[in-house]
Design a protein around this nucleic acid. Structure first.
Lengths: 173, 173
DNA sequence: CATCTCTTTCAGTAATTATCGAAACTTCAA
DNA sequence: TTGAAGTTTCGATAATTACTGAAAGAGATG
């Protein structure tokens, strides 16, 4: 009969491994997703060396991805008194995780698209041929939509948890 | 002085090229995003050969990505009477584009995560150690959130065009 | 049933992205 | 200072993903 501790380890390992696989499908790299999963399910903050050992990865890889997760706001750096080493702990609140991801993705995905669309709209403004006008209209529709999505992201990012959920339910419930 | 047609071509080429670059940042490949941009801004449906020529890509590449876009529901295959060749035309309605993307991403990203989380929840149910309980709670929180997101996606997918957008715009200004 | 037109597949190659491992750098304390 | 402990960088390599080009397949038509 398997002990609870053993079963927990096993389940957790599976979670970490699979979360990594999924990460690759969401466009983030495997290691980053694995580290995130590892830290979300570790009761204590972990050091770079502990992460390296747990996932069997190199120091460079661990370092790069830990720092990237800190940039995303998904991990915090913590220190222990009297120690120089840095430890990392995960944000555990799911709404907060969601907000950080929304914010980062907006910055990376929506903002550049908006710039491009605005530019194409301006360039094609006042065109008189059928093709030119159709192009302008399409750019305008896309711009309006992305602009809308962008605004929504901002709102989500600056809204207290419960409220966001209520609003979402109101819109879609 | 540049003619309107020349300027349109130039702007459109820039749109296609940049949309491609952005595609890579959204986790879809450059060619797929470029083809999508090309067809969204082409007044007529295009054949595989026309796409190949316009983007300077191979037949295999064009074929694969056209079919992938059809799978996503972002392109339709159309035929001309008396011709055997297939032509492709883009869905132009932004709300419809959004719905197709949401639906596809839910299937690829949310559903597998849900399976994993449900499984981890079940496995850790009833654990008694502090670590086991914490793990179970974290899995539960994540599961609840992803489940909620999944439901939201379904709602979006079955909502009439424009209606939600208008309501949301009203609420968000 | 031979051939023409168009579509699909796929093995090989190119391009991109992730990872390693070691060296360089930084900081602190003896 | 010097060295120990820890962090960061980076060139080389591995792994993954995208693309090509050619060949095979699938219908239609005479």
């Amino acid at each position: 009969m398997k002990g609870e501790a053993a079963k927990l380890n096993e389940t957790r390992d599976r979670f970490v491994a699979q979360w990594g696989v999924m990460g690759t499908q969401w466009g983030i790299n495997r290691t980053m997703a694995q580290i995130h999963a590892l830290l979300m399910t570790n009761p204590e903050p972990m050091s770079t060396d502990e992460v390296m050992e747990e996932l069997h990865i190199s120091r460079g890889n661990a370092h790069t991805n830990l720092k990237e997760l800190v940039n995303w706001g998904l991990l915090r750096i913590v220190t222990r008194k009297g120690e120089r080493k840095e430890y990392f702990e995960a944000e555990l609140d799911v709404w907060e995780i969601f907000r950080r991801i929304v914010k980062e993705r907006k910055r990376r995905e929506l903002d550049p698209a908006l710039d491009l669309l605005e530019d194409c709209m301006t360039e094609s403004k006042g065109m008189t041929t059928a093709g030119g006008r159709a192009f302008h209209e399409q750019m305008k529709s896309l711009e309006e939509f992305v602009h809308f999505a962008s605004k929504m992201s901002d709102r989500v990012g600056s809204m207290p948890h419960g409220k966001t959920m209520k609003l979402a339910l109101k819109l879609f419930g």
